[in-house]
Each structure stands twice: as structure tokens, then as C-alpha cells.
């Protein structure tokens, strides 16, 4: 039954792709490529996720979430070697999930995490991810106010640069400059942390 639905849905999407204008046809092209990524990398991603979370249902859900994230990333179809990147995006989501599981029985926080670090293999990744997040947060806190505001607006409210420019009352070029500046600072902080 559900396969039948799915095939009809595919058919419908083909139809709509056909009678659309030129601008949207390109978007329709973007979609099969994400589906192609899914078809090609699903087994590897799924087994990776299952190893991390040890539950096939949750792994499947995290795989969905991975592709929801990927669907928001531009130009993935142009990437020649996407596999390790896909694994990284999926791993981050799995780590988020593992962190939530730990938090459930209202645990004491980092000390406890550190204690467990030796016992479970995933723990080290968790700690590393948290360290990265802490560094990133610090980096954002230290940004010049205007750059910080711009980043928050564009990132967390998912505004386009044009929308952000309107809201902030500055030019689009200025918005882009703030963002590039902010991202370079974040990157620099992460890099110095690695060394």
C-alpha cells in the first residue's frame, strides 16, 4: 500500500516538474540529486548510525533528520566526495541524540560525562563535540555586536541576506561582510583549539 502511494507520489512529482517554469525546473533537478545521495549512501549512513545509537528505529529517524539537514544545504549535488561529509552530519545528529539520552535522568553534567568517558567509546566524541560547541559559543559571544546580531538573525531565523539587510537597515553587502567575518572568527577559534 505505502509503496503504491510512494510510486504515485513520484509520478506526481514528475508531472509537476514537467509543467513548471524554467526557474523551478532547476529546483526539481536539485531534488533527485539529494535522492540520489540517499540511494547511494543510505546503507553506509544507516549502519554508522546504528553503531552509534544501537537502535535501528532511532537510526532510521536520525537518517531522516540527516537528509532534512542536507536539504537545506546548497550545491551538495556538485560535491564529488560527499561521503565523509555525510557521515559527519549524521554523527553530529547521533551525538545530539546520545546527549539527550544522558540528560534524561537529570545527570550531574560534565564531571559525570568525563567519568564515563573511558567506559563507552562514543563518549570521547561527545566530549569533543561539546568542547567544539563551547568554543563556538565563546567565539560568537566575542563577535562585534553588529556581526553577532547579523549572524543570529540569518542563522537562527533562517533569513535570506536580503531580508536581514532590510531588518537591520544596512546594505546586503554589509550583511555578507559581517557574516563572512563571523564565520572566519568561528573557524579560527576551532582551528586554534585543534592545535
Amino acid at each position: 500500500m505505502s509503496t503504491n502511494f510512494y510510486q504515485r507520489a513520484l509520478l506526481a512529482s514528475d508531472l509537476t516538474g514537467d509543467d513548471d517554469g524554467a526557474g523551478s525546473a532547476s529546483e526539481a533537478q536539485q531534488v533527485p540529486s539529494l535522492d540520489a545521495l540517499y540511494q547511494q549512501h543510505r546503507p553506509a549512513l544507516l549502519s554508522h548510525l546504528q553503531r552509534m545509537v544501537k537502535d535501528p528505529h532511532i537510526a532510521e529517524e536520525l537518517l531522516h533528520d540527516t537528509f532534512i539537514r542536507l536539504s537545506r544545504m546548497p550545491a551538495l549535488s556538485s560535491i564529488r566526495q560527499p561521503k565523509s561529509f555525510l557521515l559527519k552530519v549524521a554523527s553530529n545528529l547521533a551525538l545530539d541524540h546520545l546527549r539527550q539520552c544522558q540528560r534524561q535522568p537529570d545527570s550531574g553534567g560534565e564531571e559525570e560525562l568525563a567519568e564515563q568517558a573511558s567506559s563507552e567509546p562514543g563518549q570521547l566524541d561527545l566530549l569533543l563535540q561539546e568542547r567544539r560547541q563551547r568554543r563556538l559559543r565563546e567565539a560568537i559571544d566575542q563577535l562585534p555586536p553588529r556581526a553577532r546580531e547579523t549572524l543570529l538573525l540569518v542563522r537562527y531565523r533562517e533569513l535570506t541576506l536580503r531580508e536581514a539587510a532590510q531588518e537591520l537597515g544596512i546594505s546586503q553587502t554589509m550583511v555578507e561582510k559581517h557574516l563572512k567575518n563571523a564565520l572566519q572568527k568561528c573557524r579560527a577559534v576551532l582551528q586554534s583549539d585543534m592545535q
Binding site: 505505502s2 510512494y6 513520484l10 512529482s13 509537476t16 531534488v31 539529494l34 531522516h64
Partner: peptide
């Protein structure tokens, strides 16, 4: 718009 990702999403 919609995009089918695999058979379940």
C-alpha cells in the same frame, strides 16, 4: 514543493 527522499520521507 515536495521531494521524496527514499521511500519513507
Amino acid at each position: 514543493r515536495h521531494s521524496a527522499i527514499g521511500e519513507q520521507l
